[in-house]
């Protein structure tokens, strides 16, 4: 008994001195986090309860009216729909395409470093440069816009890429895919390289064909990478901003409005900062819900696997 007691004491003493050290080392980071992340979020929450134009102190307390207005605003619903459309397209078009590219050039192919560089290059460009460049490419006048010039040369019907309200979101999605496909491709290539050769060889000896190899060997072993890339893709899509704002400002007539441009419009174009803060909180909640659900789902599947 005595020995155990002293052991415990000794242990706890060491523990407490450790704890102080840990605490001391954490202070700078914690302060930064508190000042620049935690407090602002609560301030944002606070301001979202006011009708406030950003000038002078916020005084006109209106409770949750901002949130009620958000939910009943058709433009917000449109922005939400567009954002989810981009999320969906990214998941079900962009990622499979990236995977396809990765499998095509991941191994063996001649000049694969070249292809890898070409597909990855757009990711290195800043979003602003990408958006400005594509604005020029999309110019409806064939003497200035390259894409319509090609269409004209082939005798196809020229399109008003960014001015047609039914086409604009698709046009923007092409740019997003062009820019981000290389990044996901690179993730998959790395994932593919980590699949042990002997597993595949064993499967080959067992006589699998190419399709079976893909569905039973490659994809399951790539699971972790796919989960990461899907996660990054969804969060990125939820927050897409610069490309949309520079190319269309969410227009024409909100046809390409997404959550972040909606938030920006109300905060810094219309100067309804209280309302903008409420939109920011809604975005935060959506991202949080997604993250938490996604984590719990993927963790569960990991257990099953």
């Amino acid at each position: 008994m005595v020995t155990i007691e002293t052991l415990k004491k000794r242990k706890s003493r060491r523990f407490s001195s450790d704890r102080i050290k840990v605490f001391l080392f954490l202070i700078p980071a914690a302060v930064l986090l508190l000042v620049f992340l935690v407090i602002p979020i609560f301030q944002c929450l606070y301001y979202s309860l006011f009708n406030w134009n950003g000038m002078g102190p916020a005084e006109d307390f209106i409770g949750i009216i901002n949130y009620k207005k958000i939910i009943s605003d058709n433009v917000f619903l449109r922005a939400l729909g567009n954002t989810f459309a981009i999320v969906g397209l990214s998941l079900f078009v962009q990622l499979p395409l990236a995977l396809f590219l990765a499998i095509m050039i991941g191994r063996g192919i001649k000049g694969r470093a070249f292809y890898r560089t070409v597909f990855f290059l757009p990711y290195v460009l800043s979003e602003t440069i990408t958006a400005v460049m594509w604005r020029i490419l999309y110019n409806p006048d064939p003497s200035r816009g390259f894409i319509n010039a090609v269409f004209q040369a082939f005798g196809w019907k020229m399109q008003d890429w960014l001015g047609n309200m039914n086409l604009v979101l698709f046009s923007i999605f092409i740019v997003l895919t062009w820019k981000y496909i290389g990044f996901h491709m690179l993730l998959y290539i790395t994932g593919l390289q980590n699949i042990p050769r002997d597993v595949e060889e064993a499967a080959l000896i067992d006589g699998v064909n190419k399709r079976q190899m893909l569905t039973y060997i490659t994809l399951p072993l790539l699971g972790g990478t796919i989960r990461t890339s899907a996660y990054l893709s969804v969060l990125g899509s939820l927050q897409v901003y610069a490309i949309v704002w520079i190319m269309t400002k969410g227009g024409p007539v909100n046809a390409s409005e997404v959550l972040s441009t909606y938030m920006y419009r109300f905060s810094f174009v219309r100067f309804q900062l209280g309302y903008g803060a409420a939109v920011a909180i809604v975005m935060l909640i959506i991202s949080l819900i997604f993250s938490v659900t996604y984590m719990s789902i993927t963790r569960r599947t990991e257990h099953i696997a």
């Binding site: 301030q43 920011a280 909180i281 991202s287």
Partner: peptide, 12 residues
């Protein structure tokens, strides 16, 4: 996710 609202909060 917090980074998403970071800018707004900073200004506020």
């Amino acid at each position: 996710t917090l980074v998403a609202v970071f800018m707004v909060s900073m200004l506020l």
